[in-house]
Design a protein around this nucleic acid. Structure first.
Lengths: 350, 350
DNA sequence: ATGAAAGCGCTAACAC
DNA sequence: GTGTTAGCGCTTTCAT
């Protein structure tokens, strides 16, 4: 109940040893008389002493904390990821400092802080593009960095195979007999959006289906406040895009690939409001496999997000021990989950 | 691009001043020759210098970080809360250290760490019960603590008015003409679950409706792995509970109050599987207003979670500046959101 | 107004 | 094996 925190000096004095010795028992040093160690340990326990993280950090030049810089979590994707991260971090007895970026313009500020404040030993940068300027600084300072859901040649990264995932989604729709397949994408500035678009195109091309410009929508073309937010992967954007699609009376698609489940939610609402039904009037495949997808009977492309988070941390911790390790780029494969929204096999009618 | 990080000494030397002076410009000290300040500022900028958080922390005995101890986030509630927390923390240029408790038995470990490592200036303890032992330590050390979604006489707290929320939900159902109203609750060990139960009882009693034991379920009575997890507020638990309820042929309720929306999701699934419809066969009101609720047309009790998070941080920061401030217990009111699941007004038939 | 010096609580190199 | 001491990078008196 003492007011002032107990320090290593208090322990040393009470145990009748020097502070060096106390420090040694703290750091599991080998060269110690078992008897001395026991005595010190006893005092530590009596005094309820615990080392001061900042003092240790300063002396050791090691913080035992890592930072995760996340775009202000829009939803399930980041939550699952964070769970995985937290799980791994905690397992290794590290602390997690969370920087969440509310305004993408300010990404640099957060990176700069994580980089220069030396509050953490390493950084996880999630779904965010790293400016070249900072990329160099990370290398210069040898501060380990792992990119998650993004990549850069100079840094380790863990990404989902977005292109292949999208390819599988659209391929599945083609197999079901659809030929007029739309895509509703997030902002095209976002890398995942670009990759998913590429997968969409590849599948169509392979099947010899001519891409139709009117069937390719992305959030940046939309009007409406909410749709513009962040990366354009949101409910509102999906809703608006689907409304647009449904207006195209003559060229209305029979199926649509939604670049995210959350957009799919909005789209489904628009379909219902239009008095149409899914999958009969329009089939759908999403991306993410958020918790809700199963509930909605939405076919989708599942990303193993928790695992990604864990893996990112594991990799980062490797880098901490060996900062000169070679760069590695992990690519995690997706899984197509087929539910009701993809409908039955369609006989051709064209 | 220099290997070693730039320190206050580098700045001092290059600016031709003492380190004290550099420190002063860093700390906005008043007594400084404007010209000196400008010169130092210039050098700081040239060298891209930024103070070392740990060194500052050690010297100032202040970390500019707070911790949030969260039960391994089960869902939307914690995400929204965290968003609010992050928003406020970031606004005040503090850092957020996240401790997420995967195993409730280990709560003490995390509290202990936050308490004794002195890595943070204050702690937010969320939805977790604080052991008396630690409660005293927080007071002894004068480490500010704010309880969120939990309370304790010796500490500041922010809670939702669970009892009133539940009361309003059930009252609403009564107004719609229901007399046989069930409750599906989380684990009764959880304080919110207890409070919601109290609200349920109060509403029934006020309406002169006799409580029926068979209509009062909570997750702890359920069998099944998933249902037991954490606080019992989960989809699986809702599903199982509703199945049980639907089995009671003769006493099947006409309405049910679900203590959380996520349980409601599971319950709705069970209802559909039983070939019944909501709200005709069974009306429902949930609790939380998760994103999905609107989508499901689920009437529910909305908790302002983001706001709670913000407010908790604001209060904690107040406490940092004035550790001897009087304890305050904030109680946030809920809002009843009426959607389709509550059905139309029912004519009595009994 | 500003330089010098004493800590903050710990680690690690150096003595014995 | 263990005590002593010099930092780690900063803030903050205390002089001047």
């Amino acid at each position: 109940m003492s007011k002032a925190a107990v320090t290593i000096y208090d322990v040393a004095k009470k145990a009748g040893v020097g502070i060096g010795t106390v420090s040694r028992v703290l750091n599991q040093s080998q060269r110690l008389a078992p008897e001395t160690r026991a005595r010190v340990l006893q005092v530590i326990s009596d005094l309820n002493y615990q080392p001061h993280a900042f003092a240790q950090g300063l002396a050791r030049k090691k913080t035992f904390a890592i930072a995760a810089i996340v775009p202000f979590f829009t939803g399930y994707f980041y939550v699952e990821l964070l769970k995985g991260i937290q799980h791994a971090v905690s397992k290794h007895k590290y602390d997690l400092v969370l920087y969440s970026v509310d305004d993408l313009k300010k990404t640099g500020t957060y990176i700069r802080r994580a980089l220069q404040e030396r509050r953490v030993d390493g950084v996880l940068l999630i779904s965010l593009k790293i400016p070249e300027k900072y990329s160099e600084q990370f290398q210069g300072r040898k501060l380990p960095l792992v990119l998650v859901d993004a990549s850069h040649p100079s840094h380790d990264s863990i990404t989902v195979n977005n292109k292949d995932g999208a390819y599988r989604a659209v391929h599945h729709l083609l197999e079901r007999g659809h030929r007029s397949i739309a895509i509703v994408n997030g902002h095209l500035e976002s890398i995942p959006a670009q990759e998913r678009f590429a997968g969409y195109q590849k599948a169509l091309q392979e099947a010899g289906v001519e891409p139709v410009k009117d069937l390719m929508l992305s959030s940046d073309e939309l009007e409406g406040e909410a749709a513009i937010l962040n990366d354009g992967f949101n409910k509102e954007a999906g809703y608006l895009a689907m409304q647009l699609l449904l207006k195209r009376k003559c060229t209305r698609p029979t199926a649509v690939f939604m670049a995210s489940d959350i957009q799919a939610m909005g789209a489904i609402k628009a379909i219902r409001e239009a008095g149409l039904s899914m999958p009969d009037d329009i089939a759908m495949v999403g991306f993410d496999d958020i918790e809700l997808a199963e509930y909605l009977g939405l076919s989708t492309v599942r990303q193993p997000m928790f695992k990604m988070g864990e893996q990112a941390v594991e990799r980062l911790l490797c880098l901490l021990n060996d900062p000169d390790a070679e760069r590695r780029h992990f690519r995690i494969e997706t899984e197509l989950v087929i539910r009701e929204s993809s409908g039955q096999i369609r006989t051709l009618e064209s």
